[in-house]
């Protein structure tokens, strides 16, 4: 129930923020040198019509990455599909002709690694945004917004590097770890990613929360509700 509520809340908020908050309520996604992570990297500024959110051009990547993520699959199969609702309990009668990830559409979950490759693009820009936010209007500053953007980039990096597919690609697909110098290096990386992978669920939730919180902070900052506390040399 908590999982269903958590996902549901994030989906509703992210859709509202990405598609409605700007065009309808005229609240910008970029303010005081801070760019909302939903819109990074910013594409099509000045070209797109006012009603078309540039987030649409980016959000499909993290959305696809999370939708096909092994942790989220477990969570939403249980929470939304009740397949199964929990372990060792009955299932709704409508679950007939079960094939799950052996047939369309869920066979597309096998494309998780494609979204993994793509996810490193916005991740790079999130680090870049956080770094660029340290310099605003010709002056250096260390604002709360920058700290939030760095924290968000860190958590998203943890989520991406703890991915099961990355763990496989780095070394899991090998049968012999000790055979060559190259496979020994890959084994070392695989072990480190295996350690991260053990907490993939925690990375998933924390990064989901952080990306939503970073967006909310920047939006509220843009409304003038409060000022960004910052240290300036």
């Amino acid at each position: 129930m908590l999982v269903a509520a958590g996902f549901g809340a994030f989906i509703v908020y992210s859709l509202f923020s990405a598609l409605i908050w700007g065009p309808v309520f005229n609240v910008p996604y970029e303010t005081q040198g801070y760019l909302s992570p939903f819109f990074s990297p910013l594409i099509g500024q000045g070209i797109l019509p006012w009603w078309f959110s540039p987030a649409v051009l980016i959000l499909w990547i993290p959305l696809g990455f999370r939708t096909t993520c092994y942790y989220y699959r477990k969570a939403y199969y249980r929470a939304y599909f009740a397949d199964p609702p929990a372990c060792a309990v009955g299932e709704p009668k409508l679950h007939t002709g079960y094939a799950m990830e052996a047939r369309f559409p869920f066979i597309l979950q096998n494309l998780h690694r494609v979204f993994l490759y793509l996810a490193f693009i916005p991740l790079f820009f999130l680090w870049l945004d956080a770094a660029l936010s340290l310099h605003h209007d010709g002056h250096w500053r260390l604002g709360l917004g920058s700290a939030i953007l760095f924290g968000n980039a860190f958590l998203l990096t943890g989520y991406s590097f703890s991915c099961h597919s990355l763990r496989h690609l780095v070394g899991g697909r090998l049968d012999c770890f000790s055979c060559t110098r190259r496979t020994r290096v890959r084994y070392s990386l695989w072990r480190r990613l295996t350690g991260l992978n053990g907490r993939h669920m925690q990375w998933a939730w924390l990064s989901l929360f952080s990306v939503g919180f970073a967006d909310l902070y920047i939006r509220l900052l843009a409304t003038g509700l409060f000022a960004d506390p910052a240290l300036r040399p």
């Binding site: 092994y70 699959r73 477990k74 249980r78 397949d83 079960y98 094939a99 799950m100 066979i107």
Partner: peptide, 8 residues
């Protein structure tokens, strides 16, 4: 592919 990784 039938496994939907519910970890039971």
């Amino acid at each position: 592919g039938y496994c939907n990784i519910t970890k039971c």
